[in-house]
């Protein structure tokens, strides 16, 4: 039985927003991307609703929308801005000493080229295999490995752990 579009949205909007937030590093952009995708999905729901995994299909639409969105807005960097993040969803208190390292890592992830970032998110957030990432990004598995390898090299290069409590302040050094 094909689920209705409204039922699909009610069940999937939060997971889609969560994925888009991680992918875009920008909650506002995540909202825009998910809105656009759901609007298009609704127009084609007869077809999308009848595929085996509508949520996987729509997630791929979100990925493509993000990649093309970035291309459309190439002149303007939309990478992570912590003040934007904080204004939308204030962070939950975290007293662990990893806090600053994680925030600094987030900033570095946000500066990765879009396909590298998408590959990193799919590998380390979605736990996808290379073949699944390749399918999602529409490229060869070798290209996926290259994206991830380069991203890790960048992230590792910049990764110099700091003593607890001496990390970057939120919003510093961000575009």
């Amino acid at each position: 039985m094909t689920p209705s579009f409204d039922d699909f949205v009610a069940a999937q909007v939060t997971p889609l927003l969560r994925y888009a937030t991680v992918l875009t590093c920008d909650p506002h952009l995540a909202q825009d991307v998910v809105q656009e995708v759901l609007l298009r999905a609704q127009q084609k729901w007869d077809r999308i609703g009848s595929v085996d995994l509508p949520n996987a299909y729509v997630k791929r639409m979100v990925t493509n929308e993000y990649l093309s969105w970035r291309r459309r807005r190439a002149a303007k960097d939309v990478a992570l801005c912590m003040t934007t993040l904080e204004s939308v969803t204030p962070p939950v208190g975290d007293k662990t000493h990893h806090y600053d390292e994680r925030e600094a890592m987030l900033q570095r992830i946000a500066k990765l080229p879009r396909k590298q970032r998408a590959a990193v998110v799919l590998r380390y957030y979605e736990n996808y295999e290379d073949s699944e990432i390749a399918q999602m990004l529409g490229c060869a598995e070798g290209t996926v490995r290259s994206h991830i390898s380069r991203a890790l090299a960048t992230l590792r290069l910049d990764h110099t752990p700091e003593p607890a409590g001496v990390g970057l302040r939120i919003g510093e050094g961000l575009s």
């Binding site: 991680v22 506002h28 969803t89 994680r102 957030y125 992230l155």
Partner: peptide, 19 residues
């Protein structure tokens, strides 16, 4: 650290209401 950072980012998912 990447996994933890992305998990942290996911906690900032906006509420679905406005969308």
């Amino acid at each position: 650290l990447i996994k933890e950072a992305l998990g942290r980012l996911a906690e900032r998912t906006p509420h679905p209401g406005p969308t």
